[in-house]
């Protein structure tokens, strides 16, 4: 057993998978001697050398594109984009090529790459460093979008992402990179990439979330327990493909649901989940599905950041509103 925080779990998964497979390569801006701006890749270059832990020029579009070329040759590149605000030049490559290479060549070429990026707000970062735009990627057919919310899930899901034969966008909630340590068994065992995680069972309401908001949602669930309200908490974790089965089973049990995400409300993944519940779970619902989300605004600079971010109190209030609906 090893005690690690979330960013250390990322590092551990990278180190283990690089040791196990010579085709795995890490690249990105400042990932080498600097170990990444969040230290996710610390000591990897020392261990694996400069040809496997590669400091790239400042070229986000080509970081994404190069990974495709490497992957088509059977390598397993793990490319880091330093912050989600800088990931957008890669969308052309992810949308036009990575997601389609297997399909357009009818399986002749494939793209086993991982694109990692820290995302989300709450750390008083500069402009363009705090957005949550996971829904943009979740809309792209042919890729997987994965968001861990604990050290154990970061470790197991990243192993799975690296081993997966298709492109994976792996978004790391930087607000909880170091919030807590967890004992994990670094056994090299991967977690499934198509299953939600039920973090807490409960019978009164289902709280559905992912990323850093998982932390706030669990705190809200704790507070609600003290009031005798037993919330089931689901960490979606794999936003694409989306495991509606687990979600629908939970909603069938509780009849009530609140979806929590930091990203802007309109067109967010929460809307997709709510629509899925509407399509398949309507008759189980005892109340309308509530959403607790960021506003449909530009992410503010950090003095107003806390006024943008959804919080524990909002989750508690939305839960009570849902429970009070008759």
């Amino acid at each position: 057993m090893t005690e690690v925080n979330l960013v250390e779990a990322v590092n551990l998964a990278l180190a283990q998978e690089m040791a196990a497979d010579d085709d795995v390569l890490v690249m990105g801006e400042d990932v080498g001697i600097n170990g990444g701006v969040f230290r996710a890749t610390i000591n990897l270059q020392k261990q694996f050398g400069t040809t496997r832990v590669v400091d790239t020029p400042l070229s986000e579009a080509v970081i994404g594109g190069m990974a495709i070329g490497m992957a088509a040759q059977g390598m397993k590149p793990v490319a880091e984009i330093q912050f989600m605000g800088f990931i957008y030049p890669t969308i052309d490559q992810i949308l036009n090529h990575a997601s389609r290479l297997r399909n357009r060549t009818r399986g002749r070429l494939s793209c086993p790459m991982v694109l990692r990026a820290p995302f989300g707000g709450g750390i008083h970062a500069p402009e363009h460093h705090s957005e949550s735009t996971e829904a943009m990627f979740a809309h792209i057919p042919g890729i997987r979008v994965v968001i861990p919310s604990s050290p154990a899930r970061a470790y197991g899901l990243l192993l799975a992402a690296i081993r997966d034969p298709d492109p994976v966008v792996f978004l790391e909630p930087k607000r909880i990179y170091r919030i807590a340590k967890q004992e994990i068994e670094a056994s090299g065992e991967a977690l499934p990439l198509d299953t939600c995680f039920v973090l807490r069972e409960g019978s009164d309401i289902t709280l559905i979330t992912w990323g850093a908001m998982t932390h706030d949602t669990l705190q809200a669930a704790d507070a609600l327990t003290e009031e005798g309200i037993h919330a089931e908490v689901i960490d979606v974790a794999t936003l694409k493909p989306l495991d509606m089965t687990t979600i629908l089973e939970s909603v069938a049990k509780t009849g009530r649901c609140v979806i929590v995400h930091e990203a802007a409300r309109s067109g967010g993944v929460g809307a997709e989940i709510a629509a899925g519940i509407g399509e398949k779970g309507l008759l189980h619902l005892l109340a309308p599905v509530e959403r607790v989300t960021g506003y449909d605004t530009v992410m503010p600079l950090y003095r107003l950041e806390q006024c943008y971010m959804p919080d524990k109190q909002q989750i508690i209030e939305a839960t009570k509103k849902t429970l009070e609906f008759v």
């Binding site: 579009a61 594109g65 070329g69 040759q73 490559q93």
Partner: peptide
């Protein structure tokens, strides 16, 4: 867009 793939393929070589 293929120029970036070429660089990746060449890196693998």
């Amino acid at each position: 867009s293929q120029t970036a793939h070429a660089v990746g393929v060449a890196y693998a070589f």
